[in-house]
Simulated assay, not measured.
Amino acid sequence: MAIETLPDLIDAAKARRVVLKVGSSLLVDRVGQARREWLDTLAGEIAAMARGGQQVIVVSSGAIAMGGALLDPTLNPRRNLAAAQASASVGQIALAGLWSGKLAAQGLTAGQMLLTLDDLEDRRRYLNASATFAHLLEAGVIPVVNENDSVATEEIRFGDNDRLAARVAQAAGADAVVLLSDVDGLYDRAPGEEGARLVEIVNGIDAEILAMAQGTSGSGLGSGGMVSKLQAAQIAERAGIALAIINGTHDAPLSRAVEQSRGTIFLPQRSDKARKAWLGGRLAPSGTLRVDAGCEAALKAGASLLAAGMVGVSGAFRRGDLVTVVSLKGAKLAQGLCEYSSADCMAIAGKREEQQEAALGYAPRPTVIHRDHMVVL
């Protein structure tokens, strides 16, 4: 049974496994103190879901904000990388203790998982994370996930927990993701503007939907915004996972959203097999291949990428690295594992098979990216 409405999110028959993302501005106030009474109501809702037969994973922000308040509440904990990492180190213990205590009061056991981008970009580590989620959930544990900000740098971090939540949902085989926000959902313009309309159902993200997003976090505490939420929804919809955005500022936010049918739900668009879902969700390509219009049409029809269709190469990558494929106008078309290094791609770009051996100095491979190792976006 498919998820089609907000009430479906608390129906174990339709959403047995749910990822719940909680942002910093909801969990922590402006001086870095946990909003304990609010969290009591949310923990109660998680317990109700568990009693109803659902398995819940929590993706929680808040470590940097909580740690910064403990180290020095007069300073911005994100003022530089070292300060953010130190604040996260202190805050991760406080955050884990907070969740553990609130869930224990509901008769639930929490388990902490700290992840970096590399943990979900590397196939072997992704599978390890997937196995850990499966074991914890079958044991009745509520995994509490956060990005490992104490070691993550700009090059190896998600940067927001919205996309992390979508990737966790993939790894865990979840049916749905719920992003708790400081607004009711996606509006067709800035929520404060006169006449702004809440978009209740999105059946596929297109250019019109993307244009509605606002790129900043209103609270100033978090690192995401509506843009990151739509990026998370794109990851989810390709993997057959529903994603909802609801207002988390109220007590018992799940119950409120369901009872009032207030929020935005993004419906799944396809259900890629496990490996392709992983490829489609990866966030750190090493380079870009630009292709001509004929190649673009062939890719959309399910073909592999051939050298003759390439018109440009950027980035430095090795054989087997993830690359993005873009159109002549720069629109993202696909991403996949490249059969050649960037230097070899430059050597054979635009050349037919019979010309490639002379350019490479060895017999060419049949494809630049095989369709089995590529996902059309």
Rank of each mutant, 00 (worst) to 15 (best):
residue 125 R to Y: 05
residue 168 V to Q: 02
residue 122 D to T: 08
residue 145 V to K: 04
residue 134 A to T: 05
residue 140 G to Q: 11
residue 176 A to M: 09
residue 163 R to Q: 14
residue 191 P to V: 10
residue 153 T to G: 08
residue 134 A to C: 07
residue 112 Q to S: 13
residue 134 A to S: 14
residue 183 V to Y: 08
residue 161 N to W: 04
residue 174 A to R: 03
residue 145 V to M: 09
residue 181 S to R: 03
residue 182 D to C: 10
residue 180 L to W: 05
residue 147 E to H: 06
residue 124 R to H: 11
residue 145 V to L: 05
residue 140 G to V: 13
residue 117 L to V: 06
residue 128 N to G: 05
residue 154 E to H: 08
residue 169 A to W: 06
residue 113 M to P: 04
residue 152 A to K: 00
residue 128 N to K: 14
residue 160 D to N: 06
residue 182 D to L: 07
residue 118 D to M: 10
residue 124 R to A: 14
residue 133 F to S: 09
residue 139 A to Y: 06
residue 138 E to Y: 01
residue 141 V to S: 12
residue 149 D to W: 10
residue 124 R to D: 13
residue 165 A to P: 00
residue 112 Q to I: 13
residue 130 S to T: 14
residue 159 G to V: 00
residue 122 D to V: 12
residue 180 L to A: 12
residue 139 A to T: 06
residue 171 A to H: 06
residue 189 R to C: 12
residue 129 A to L: 10
residue 156 I to P: 00
residue 186 L to I: 13
residue 147 E to M: 08
residue 156 I to M: 15
residue 131 A to V: 07
residue 117 L to W: 08
residue 142 I to N: 11
residue 190 A to K: 15
residue 123 R to P: 06
residue 143 P to V: 03
residue 152 A to C: 10
residue 120 L to W: 01
residue 162 D to W: 04
residue 151 V to K: 02
residue 144 V to H: 03
residue 137 L to D: 06
residue 113 M to E: 06
residue 126 Y to I: 03
residue 184 D to Q: 10
residue 175 D to R: 00
residue 146 N to P: 05
residue 147 E to D: 07
residue 173 G to S: 07
residue 112 Q to W: 07
residue 163 R to T: 15
residue 118 D to T: 09
residue 118 D to W: 04
residue 167 R to H: 12
residue 164 L to P: 05
residue 190 A to M: 13
residue 178 V to I: 15
residue 154 E to M: 01
residue 120 L to E: 11
residue 158 F to W: 06
residue 170 Q to K: 00
residue 162 D to C: 01
residue 182 D to A: 10
residue 188 D to F: 00
residue 122 D to P: 02
residue 135 H to Y: 11
residue 170 Q to I: 15
residue 133 F to G: 11
residue 139 A to H: 09
residue 138 E to W: 01
residue 119 D to V: 01
residue 166 A to C: 01
residue 164 L to V: 05
residue 141 V to R: 05
residue 155 E to A: 15
residue 159 G to F: 04
residue 128 N to R: 15
residue 153 T to K: 11
residue 156 I to N: 15
residue 113 M to A: 14
residue 171 A to N: 04
residue 179 L to N: 12
residue 173 G to Y: 03
residue 143 P to T: 09
residue 167 R to P: 05
residue 183 V to E: 15
residue 139 A to K: 12
residue 129 A to P: 02
residue 174 A to Y: 10
residue 154 E to I: 02
residue 140 G to H: 12
residue 183 V to W: 08
residue 163 R to K: 07
residue 122 D to N: 14
residue 185 G to I: 14
residue 112 Q to C: 11
residue 169 A to P: 06
residue 171 A to M: 02
residue 112 Q to D: 11
residue 124 R to Y: 02
residue 181 S to I: 01
residue 158 F to D: 05
residue 124 R to T: 14
residue 163 R to M: 11
residue 146 N to L: 04
residue 142 I to A: 08
residue 157 R to H: 01
residue 136 L to C: 10
residue 132 T to K: 02
residue 191 P to C: 11
residue 153 T to E: 07
residue 114 L to E: 09
residue 166 A to W: 03
residue 140 G to A: 13
residue 146 N to W: 02
residue 186 L to C: 12
residue 187 Y to Q: 11
residue 136 L to A: 14
residue 175 D to P: 02
residue 159 G to K: 00
residue 128 N to Y: 04
residue 156 I to C: 14
residue 166 A to T: 01
residue 147 E to T: 07
residue 116 T to R: 15
